[in-house]
Write a protein that binds this DNA or RNA. Structure first.
Lengths: 183, 183
DNA sequence: GGAAGCATGTAAAGTGTTACATGATTTT
DNA sequence: AAAATCATGTAACACTTTACATGCTTCC
């Protein structure tokens, strides 16, 4: 079985104490890991059982009353796989899909007024994202830091600072477009 | 037929004068539009013929010697569809998939030395991306600006500046990690 | 004459999302 | 008593990538 990136996502989260499918999904959403690696239940549950079949995970039953729950842990093989992935020297290029930037790339088809309105909406999108990072991801990151985990906070700060940068960038772009062909 | 984002990508490029499948692909690669919306021949060719069947495009034969070539143009319906997409008020959230950031999120599992090596490789990746933007995408953007197209250059500059920001960010992060738990 | 680039496509496999399906527990 | 949250999964559909398949033209 060849492991995909989403397999390592799951191994990493199980290693970090998220031992059920539900807990994995919740952590990804709460910590906005979905920003750089989104996933769904329909991927997580089959992947957990595939990883177990292939010997990277084991689980025990961990019911909560009559509600069933599976508590997964890494096997030695799972630990080795996770660590060797983390240590790989090659980092694949990041993949971005952004309809907003795609529309900006075609903004020559728009009137100046319309282009400015698009730029403003792009800025508003980043403003909102920055707020979310500051108000919910960073605080969770700080809580995790108290438990000895530093990198969730590092990622949260990076997200907030990136969007702050984007807001500045779009503000400046708006000024340039307003300025450049005055009429 | 419901149009997807990649349909609009193709409509936008045909509108911009890239009238064959091959020309579309080449422009996406050269102008590194693939950075925010990647695609392949296996998507472009079927999409062109679907868009034609649905009345958004027409083509005429435009052979180059004995080598066949299709020259597509937008129909009135295609123009309307493209413009109404560009003017839509809602901008979907950007989607990022970055194995590098995912590994950084799990860097608590690494030794300090290993974490620093990961951060350095992330910085190197952005350095290289910045260089590519400055050396090839921005110059092409400048050429297009001379033809009255401003936004390809806007996008090129944004890419270069983003990666410059990321380089600074990773440099600072490396210093923090080195500093923080001195041994 | 060979390599690089131009040009169009299909088939199969892989990956990911949405909708569906079910039921228990906790909070309001 | 209802709503929100916890918990696990499947089926169908949509989308994307990789590999294959072919042949012409231009540059060195």
């Amino acid at each position: 079985m060849a492991l995909k990136t989403s397999s390592y996502l799951i191994l990493g989260l199980v290693r970090g104490g998220m031992n059920s499918g539900y807990a994995i999904k919740r952590f990804i959403e709460e910590q906005r890991m979905s920003v750089f690696w989104a996933t769904t239940f329909a991927q997580i549950y089959p992947e957990l059982s595939d990883l177990e079949k292939a010997g990277y995970l084991t689980h025990r039953e961990d019911p909560h009353g009559a509600r069933p729950r599976h508590a997964y842990t890494l096997t030695a093989k799972g630990e080795r796989a996770l660590m060797s992935w983390l240590r790989r020297s090659r980092i694949p290029p990041m993949e971005l899909r952004d309809e907003g930037l795609l529309r900006l790339a075609f903004a020559d088809n728009l009137s100046r007024k319309e282009a400015i309105s698009l730029i403003r909406r792009l800025r508003a999108r980043s403003e909102e994202a920055e707020r979310e990072f500051r108000e919910s991801i960073i605080p969770t990151g700080e809580a995790l830091q108290a438990l000895g985990l530093r990198y969730p906070l590092v990622i949260g700060r990076m997200g907030a600072e990136y969007h702050a940068w984007a807001v500045k960038h779009f503000t400046q772009l708006e000024a340039e477009v307003l300025d450049d062909e005055p009429r």
